[in-house]
Amino acid sequence: MRTLSNCVELIFHKAYAELRAEATRAYLGFLWWFVEPILYMAVFYVIFESGLKRGGAGFVPFLLCGLVTWKWFASTVAAGSGVLGVNAAVMQQVYLPKVVFPLVLVVVNTFKFSVALGFLLLFLVLDPRNTITASWLALPALIAIQLLLIASITILVAAIVPFVPDLKLLLDNFLMLMFFLSGIFFRFQEMSAGMQQVLHFNPMLLLIEAYRAALLDDKSPHWMPLLAVVGASILLLIGGMLMFRKYDRIYPKIVIR
């Protein structure tokens, strides 16, 4: 039987290997981890700050807070649906707990997010309209909550999709819908009351609002709804882990490369 320490080594070594491999593939190498988020943010900066002249002062930081955190969530969850398929060859040759694969994905994307977040914070520090306030101290807690949310949904998606591959197509479109319903482009308060009721159930909207409160508005985030996100994430996480435990030795049979 594999020890827990071997599993932890496995997760971090595979994550390192994936990041290294990604970096060596391109000419700019690991610089891409820094260049890519800058380009990503620059696109929106150019469009909204100098192009559309939309949203008024402070719109770009507002937008970037939403985009950077959304990207961490969406790219991880979307890749979760195919993560067992990518690793089909390994799991057919050697027994290992399959939940390792979505966890590697979470580690890899969390690393990339931390670089993007670093640039976002740097941008906010350099922007004369913003000041660092005590409310920034909420940031580690918000990141921890989002990490828990991402891990739980990614694990659950990775566990279910091999049984119903069609869900992958649904998921991609559902993520696009969520992209527009997570308050990345608009202020939650600008929505109709009815819509606000519905959107309260969107955990990413709650998180994005909380990041903005802490980083831009010098306010303490609303912790109660976030506590509900934590509770729901833990339930989903338990569900996903139970599925991985139950079907651990079934996945190598059904996963298609």
């Binding site: 020890t3 070594h13 595979k14 290997a17 290294r20 491999a21 060596t24 390994v90 040759q93 290992l96």
Partner: peptide
């Protein structure tokens, strides 16, 4: 098992060994 083409032989020895269940 678990070999990654873009990594060095050294890195692949460790990666493959850990995948096979060997302690680092």
């Amino acid at each position: 098992v678990g070999f990654v083409p873009y990594l060095t032989g050294r890195e692949n020895v460790f990666l493959s060994g850990i995948v096979l269940g060997m302690p680092k």
